[in-house]
Amino acid sequence: MSDTHLVLHDPDGLIEAELPLDRAPHGTLVTAVLAWNDPDLAPRDYEQIALHLTGHAHAVAADVRRLAAALPKSDGRGALAEIVLREADGRLPTPLKGTAHCAQNRARLVQALYTSLGHLTAPVLSAT
């Protein structure tokens, strides 16, 4: 076995852009986490769920950012996406806590990012 390794340099995220997001399991997780009323999980379980949602939020935000950047400046969908992205940029770096509240906040963020992604990928109806 060799102890050499290959370092991938992809500053524009082109490889990631080619990988489709697997929305179904993450959507199910978001729905389940947001439906919690008074769950009784260990703090490390909440942290793991929040960590998983955080990683997925980063991936969805990258897609939203890429699609919004490709829109013409006059397209209002880009401005709305920027609002969601600013919110994500402010919330994603915050430390995770082993609480249901923290996991639910990450789930809400993923939900908002998916809503923004949906607006960016929906066909635009012309007013003709």
Score class of each variant (00 low, 15 high):
P39T: 13
I49Y: 01
A35T: 08
A100I: 01
V30S: 06
A68S: 13
A112T: 06
T99V: 05
E18L: 14
L113V: 02
Q48A: 15
V84Q: 03
W36R: 12
G90A: 09
R65V: 07
Y46L: 03
G98Q: 02
H9E: 11
P11K: 06
L53F: 02
R106L: 07
G27T: 06
G98D: 04
I83P: 03
A100L: 01
S116K: 05
A61Y: 04
G27H: 06
I83Y: 01
E16N: 11
E16Y: 04
L29N: 07
A112N: 08
V30M: 07
A81K: 05
G98E: 02
R66W: 09
A69T: 08
D38H: 14
D75W: 01
D10M: 03
T31N: 12
P93T: 05
V60G: 03
L96T: 09
D22W: 08
D40R: 15
P95I: 01
H26E: 14
A81R: 07
L117W: 04
G90H: 03
A35S: 15
Q104S: 07
A59I: 07
L67V: 10
G55E: 11
L41N: 12
A35G: 10
K73C: 05
G76S: 10
A81P: 10
T54R: 12
T94R: 08
A79I: 05
N37S: 15
N105W: 00
P95M: 03
L41P: 12
G90R: 07
A59S: 13
A112Q: 11
L21H: 05
P20K: 10
A107M: 07
H58T: 15
G98V: 01
A107W: 00
H52Y: 08
R108D: 07
Y46E: 09
I49L: 11
W36T: 10
R44T: 14
L92T: 07
